[in-house]
Design a protein around this nucleic acid. Structure first.
Lengths: 129, 129
DNA sequence: TCATTTCGATTACGGATGTAAACATGAAGC
DNA sequence: GCTTCATGTTTACATCCGTAATCGAAATGA
């Protein structure tokens, strides 16, 4: 077997995901940076953020490069991969894998605005070309 | 405040959701019925299914009507409500609430087949009318 | 050099989850 | 009536998750 990228993607929890979003937004960042960025919405203590960063490092979702006394953290997995996986999970679990059913449902619940519809229409046109 | 339907919707876990799906499919059912239906895919013991049913009753997601020695279980929440809530959670968390972004992503990842696209197109036509 | 600050690492701890075994109790045979 | 089956209830228990406090070591300042 190849020795290459062997990172089995361990599940990222919701709290951990919030940390990932910060890192996806501002790549190499210190624990303090992340904590600051999250203080607004989540109000977590620095200790909590450190715990989450530690868990993410273990899960190989982020890297930690030594920078003097501290680490600089950066994502190892791409955001698009993550949201792709998560979206697929949902579609599989709730809609038996049929993405169209999801769209139908969103439309039904009027979760789609007029603008959304227009946007999707444009997308479809592009895809069909 | 109204005294009416006061059931705060407690979160349903993934395992519990599997049980809900069975009940949504065959409404009043006994624990054994549910267990049988799930044995195929999940391979849970009857004991496990009973635990899940108990938790769902507590969460007021299903009802348990006495029927002689046992109970008949039935969903109290509707499937469309559940998948609506869950879909919304995902869209909010991963796409900042923009459902169109989800569709765009699915399209990008080619999670949408040619058939899906056609189906969605039809949906849109209907919605725009 | 000693106290303070700053980090990461270790430990904590309650609640949820997945997965079940053990227990209690009534029904059904024998 | 006593044993056995069926069924719900209670208890169990490891892991994950959210949320930190504490510990230990290095850097910094006085």
């Amino acid at each position: 077997m190849g020795q290459g990228s062997n990172a089995k993607p361990e599940r990222i929890s919701e709290a951990e995901h919030a940390v990932m979003e910060v890192l996806w937004g501002a790549s190499p960042a210190t624990a303090a940076d992340v904590s600051d960025a999250l203080a607004q919405n989540r109000g977590w203590s620095l200790a909590t953020v450190k715990t989450l960063l530690g868990r993410l490092v273990q899960k190989q979702a982020i890297s930690a490069s030594p920078d003097g006394r501290r680490y600089l953290y950066a994502p190892l997995i791409e955001r698009s991969d993550y949201i792709g996986t998560e979206s697929k999970r949902l579609v599989d679990r709730l809609f038996g894998g049929r993405a169209a059913s999801l769209v139908a449902h969103l439309a039904d619940q009027e979760a789609l605005t007029e603008d959304d519809l227009t946007e999707i229409e444009a997308l479809l046109k592009e895809l069909k070309r």
